[in-house]
Design a protein around this nucleic acid. Structure first.
Length: 272
DNA sequence: ACGAATGTTGCGGG
DNA sequence: ACCCGCAACATTCG
């Protein structure tokens, strides 16, 4: 259930391992062909065969692998996991995508819930169309955020989760950022003042950067490489802390649904 | 034992 | 434009 920091962590890991590898073939070990977002296994084989993996970066929650011609993208969704060194006990039942490289190594995409998707494309124009601003980019300023919040009239939490608005935030970090900036998850975007809006943009950047430095958050099953876990779990203030005293005011933290997403917040610290 | 919930996203409908 | 409900799927928790 990777969000921006987890995807960045995976990308940082892949960067040291993948560049230079040459694809020999594509497999779908468990037969779940729904993993191929744009075409059949046959088409993926045709497109990827003999391609050289070059640079790797993150855009939103997408892992973008640049090939010598075209791109290979991976979206982990809820339970997707990339494994490079084959463990003795890998359960191929959950591996829906596999790359075999010319040096006899492999990339396994293991995905228990099968929501993850693999994309192939010639360019990234379509991606830029569907994704909003990168929250860690220089363009994401307090001024930008304030203006954007006031152009709309939406509940702040669903808005922050909207990938077309800001790319990369998910349930954990939105809850954390709203708590840190004292904003109620149901607050209406254009009613958030300059001060808290500025606080929000700063909180988003600070939390994401901190989470990246801790290799992300593992709650249930995020891991990368050889089962490395994210260490930001210990740094969470609000997510998953139902009934635990708020670190700021000691009032027990509430969990409710906001826009169909489980949402943690403090009714004393977070105001409309 | 069974229904509900899980960190994601996309769709259709109002 | 936006919100809601539900869908994809498997596992775990209460």
């Amino acid at each position: 259930m990777p969000e921006l920091p987890e995807v960045q962590t995976v990308v940082n890991y892949l960067k040291q391992k993948l560049p230079g590898k040459i694809i020999q073939s594509v497999k779908c070990p468990n037969g779940y062909t729904g993993v191929f977002e744009n075409g059949s296994l046959q088409k993926y084989n045709n497109f990827l065969n003999s391609k050289v993996l070059q640079s790797i970066h993150r855009r939103g929650k997408f892992i973008v692998i640049e090939l010598n011609s075209g791109f290979l993208l991976i979206h982990l969704r809820m339970t997707g996991k990339i494994i490079l060194e084959k463990p003795k006990s890998i359960n191929m039942k959950y591996v829906s995508f596999q790359l075999k490289f010319s040096d006899a190594s492999d990339l396994f995409f293991q995905d228990i819930r099968k929501f993850g998707r693999i994309y192939i494309c010639k360019n990234l124009n379509w991606l830029e169309k569907i994704l909003g601003l990168e929250p860690l980019s220089n363009d994401f300023t307090s001024k930008w955020l304030y203006e954007q919040l006031h152009k709309r009239k939406r509940m702040i939490k669903p808005l922050l989760l909207d990938q077309q608005f800001i790319a990369g935030l998910g349930n954990i970090y939105v809850d954390e950022a709203l708590w840190k900036s004292g904003i109620h998850p149901k607050a209406i975007s254009n009613e958030i003042g300059k001060k808290r809006s500025t606080q929000l943009s700063a909180s988003i950047k600070a939390i994401l950067n901190s989470a990246i430095s801790f290799q992300g958050t593992t709650i249930i099953n995020f891991s990368y490489g050889q089962n490395n876990k994210g260490n930001f779990s210990n740094e969470l203030n609000i997510f998953g802390k139902t009934d635990i005293p708020c670190p700021k005011c000691s009032k027990p933290i509430i969990k409710n649904f906001v826009g169909q997403r489980g949402t943690h917040y403090c009714t004393k610290c977070q105001k409309y």
